[in-house]
Write a protein that binds this DNA or RNA. Structure first.
Lengths: 152, 152
DNA sequence: CGGTATCCTGTGAGATACTG
DNA sequence: CAGTATCTCACAGGATACCG
C-alpha cells in the first residue's frame, strides 16, 4: 500500500499516472528537460495550449515537486520554469514513452518525423529488442479452439 | 507531424499519452504482462474497478491494438485477455513508470511495499543513476537575484 | 509579461439494474 | 460469466475578458 498526499495507491503505477495525468504535462516536462524556459517560451513551443491551462498544469507540477518556478521581481514580469532534481529523474520514463509512441505511430499511423536526433540510442534499443523478442514468442500457434461445452 | 487514426500529434509523447490515458489501463496492462487472464480474474486483481469501466477500457486497449480478446464459445462464457506482441513491447515503459512512481512515493509519501521482487534491477538502476546525477548537478547555487529594473 | 476571474461544455467515470 | 443499458455527475479543459 502506498500513500501519497492523502491518496491511497495499490501500485506505484498509479502514483506515476496521477503525476503525469493532464493533457500538457508531458509536453511541458519534455521542453523543460532541455533547458529552463520562460512562460511565454513554453506557450510558443506548445501550440494550442491556452494561457489558463499552461498556468494550471505548471502549478500542479510545481505542487508535486517536479517543476521549480522562479519569479524575477522586475517589470515587466519574468518567470522562469525549470525541472527540480526529481523532475529531471523523469527523463528515462519520458524517453521510453517517446520511443514507444514513435514505434506505435510507425506501425499504426503516419509519421513525417525522425526521432534519431532527440533520443539517445540506448532507449530505442530497449524497445526495439522487446519488439524482436515478441516476434519470436508469437510462435505458430493460431490453432483454433472451437469446442463447445455446457459446463466449465 | 504524426497522424494516428485521424488524430494529429506534434510529438510521440502525445501518442503514448492517448494510448495509456484512462484510469485503469496501466493497471490492466501490468496484470496482463504476467499472464493471460480472464475477465473475472482482472476484476478481482484490480480492486474498485466496476464491470463497466473494466469492459470499456479493455475494449479501448483492444481497438488500439495493445490487447487481444479471445472469446471461447462455451457456456458459461469464458473470455481471455492477453497483450498483443506490440502491447508487450510496452513493458519497458511500464517498468520505468513503476520504478519512478516508487521512488516518488519513497520521497514524498509513505510506502509499505517492496519493489525488488517485481522489477528487474536494470530498470531501477537507470532511475537511481538519474537521481544521483541530478544531486551532483544541483550545485550550491542558491544565490538570490533580487534586482528590479523597469525595462526588459 | 504573465498571469487571475468567470463562465461554459464534453466526457470520463461511478452507481445501479438487467441479460444471453 | 461476462457482459449491456441507463442515468448521473464531477471535473478536466476551453473561451473570453480583465489586471498588476
Amino acid at each position: 500500500m502506498i500513500n501519497v498526499k492523502g491518496k491511497e495507491h495499490s501500485c506505484p503505477i498509479e502514483v506515476s499516472m496521477n503525476l503525469i495525468a493532464g493533457k500538457w504535462k508531458l509536453l511541458i516536462m519534455w521542453h523543460l528537460l532541455k533547458k529552463t524556459r520562460r512562460f511565454g517560451e513554453l506557450q510558443k513551443k506548445i501550440t494550442n495550449v491556452t494561457q489558463k491551462m499552461l498556468t494550471q498544469q505548471l502549478r500542479e507540477l510545481e505542487a508535486d515537486g517536479l517543476v521549480h518556478r522562479e519569479v524575477y521581481p522586475i517589470v515587466p514580469p519574468k518567470v522562469e520554469y525549470s525541472l527540480t532534481p526529481f523532475g529531471r529523474s523523469f527523463e528515462p520514463v519520458l524517453n521510453m514513452m517517446i520511443v514507444w509512441g514513435y514505434e506505435y505511430a510507425k506501425r499504426f499511423g503516419e509519421v513525417s518525423y525522425d526521432l534519431s536526433a532527440d533520443i539517445e540510442p540506448e532507449y530505442r534499443e530497449v524497445v526495439a529488442e522487446k519488439l524482436k523478442d515478441n516476434a519470436q514468442k508469437t510462435s505458430p500457434n493460431e490453432t483454433e479452439q472451437e469446442k463447445v461445452t455446457t459446463s466449465i
